[in-house]
Computed example of a mutant assay.
Amino acid sequence: MLSFTIIVILLVMLVALARAFTGPNVFDRVLAANLFGTKTVLLIAAISYLLGSPDYLDIAVIYALINYISVIGVLRVTEIRRERRQAGAE
């Protein structure tokens, strides 16, 4: 059953990756990249449980923190660029 869960997570990651490359705007792409990162954390946790090694959970937590910080950073840069573009157009 856990192998099936891992396969489903991999399929969802593939769909998120496709959405990240084909998103109509930058926010859809960032959301898809965030989804990919979240599913990666779930995948690492599932593999950790499958192997019976809790050591991988530390890696999953660190990856989740990096994913969170990077998404906030990308959205902030996007917001700053949008504000500059609007200020230049006025």
Rank of each mutant, 00 (worst) to 15 (best):
I47D: 03
L35F: 09
V77N: 09
L75M: 15
I62P: 00
V74Q: 05
L65W: 02
V74Y: 08
Y56K: 04
R29W: 01
R82Q: 13
G73C: 10
P24N: 09
F27T: 10
A46T: 08
R76L: 12
I72A: 12
A20S: 12
A45F: 07
D55W: 11
V71C: 07
L43H: 03
K39R: 08
T22F: 13
P24S: 12
D28E: 14
A45S: 10
A46P: 01
G52Q: 07
I66V: 15
A32C: 09
L43C: 14
Y56M: 14
F36Y: 10
P54A: 14
R76H: 10
A46C: 13
Y49C: 07
E83M: 09
S48A: 15
I62H: 01
I44H: 00
T22K: 13
L31E: 02
A60I: 02
L57M: 11
I59T: 14
S70P: 01
V61S: 04
R76E: 05
T40M: 11
F21H: 09
Y68M: 14
G52L: 05
T38R: 02
L43P: 03
R76T: 09
R82G: 04
N34H: 13
S70Q: 05
Y63Q: 06
G23L: 05
N25G: 06
I72Q: 06
A45C: 12
P54M: 11
I80A: 10
P54G: 09
F36D: 01
F27Q: 08
D55I: 14
